[in-house]
């Protein structure tokens, strides 16, 4: 009997890194898993999957009509699973107008990966090839979405991200799905302990050696080297490299004081809860 493990995160928070780790852990072969063929199971906002499951051309539907069917699509998939399936998701945990959650609780668990929003802002602005100020504004918008411009086709379904804090709150406060939270900074600073806990939460039986080996194979430098060699298909157009710096605290080289204070103003409460700001109001990473 399988279940869906949602790999949930705001963009640029370490989701791909976590998927690379899982792929290396699940891979039968000893070689490093190809970043263009990760062994996880796609993304929740995959349009083709939706069309296949419903028999309807989602491009002829409104975004709200699509959302109204998404819970059933995920329940159908969960029901049909024979093994654990890992699905990436950037949607916030939201509810439809009739009160149903977008992500049903039936046979589902979530790993929620979170990263210091100061670093997310820098990474996200590179990712979208847009200015830091615009990125900071977007991260503050309570109704921010991916793929929502109504005048064109989008390869993926609309994803409501909410603000950065809203995204974190939505997954933390959900009453339906058990969530295991991982901080990007802990993945970086105490990898073995952090990844081992995640593996235990998922319920995979792996010895410590295997985890260490998978960690070794999915080191940031290795992923970056692979991208340099073969490219990465998930890299957006106009972005130089998907795997850029992969470090913590890089924001100090990029953000102005004013930009930092705008992020703090909007996200202070959540940052404190996550330990990104300590009791003396100092930024931790």
């Amino acid at each position: 009997m399988g279940e869906i493990i949602w790999l949930a995160s705001y963009p640029k928070s370490g989701n791909t890194w976590f998927r690379a780790f899982l792929s290396n852990l699940l891979s039968e072969e000893g070689d490093t898993v190809d970043i263009n063929h990760l062994e996880t199971d796609g993304i929740a906002s995959n349009r083709i999957l939706f069309d296949e499951m419903t028999g309807i051309d989602s491009e002829d539907m409104t975004m709200d009509e699509i959302d109204a069917l998404r819970p059933e699509v995920y329940e159908y998939i969960a029901e049909a699973l024979t093994k654990t399936s890992f699905v990436k998701i950037h949607d916030a945990y939201t509810h439809l107008t009739d009160g149903r959650p977008l992500i049903p609780s039936y046979k589902a668990k979530a790993i929620y990966i979170v990263r210091n929003p100061l670093d997310v802002a820098v990474s996200f602005s590179y990712h979208n090839n847009s200015s830091l100020d615009k990125t900071i504004d977007n991260m503050a918008k309570d109704d921010f979405c991916f793929c929502s411009r109504p005048i064109k086709f989008h390869t993926q379904l609309r994803q409501k991200l909410l603000s950065w804090s809203g995204h974190v709150d939505s997954w933390f406060d959900n009453n339906g799905i058990p969530v295991h939270v991982i901080r990007y900074e802990d993945m970086k600073n105490k990898p073995f302990e952090t990844f081992k806990k995640a593996v235990e939460f998922i319920g995979l039986l792996c010895d410590d050696e295997k985890i260490k080996n998978a960690l070794e194979l999915s080191q940031f430098e290795r992923l970056k080297a692979q991208e340099e060699k073969t490219g990465f298909r998930e890299k957006p157009t106009n972005m130089n490299a998907f795997f850029r710096e992969g470090k913590t605290g890089g924001w100090r080289d990029h953000l102005s004081e004013e930009q930092v204070s705008r992020i703090l103003e909007k996200h202070k409460r959540v940052m404190k809860n996550l330990g990104y700001i300590d009791e003396n109001n100092n930024i931790v990473f």
């Binding site: 296949e52 499951m53 069917l69 059933e72």
Partner: peptide
């Protein structure tokens, strides 16, 4: 039989709310 359609030999059903 999936979320909104059912198909059998020479038969097809599609149900769309609204």
């Amino acid at each position: 039989k999936r979320i909104r359609f059912e198909a059998a030999k020479d038969e097809f059903l599609l149900k769309l709310e609204g």
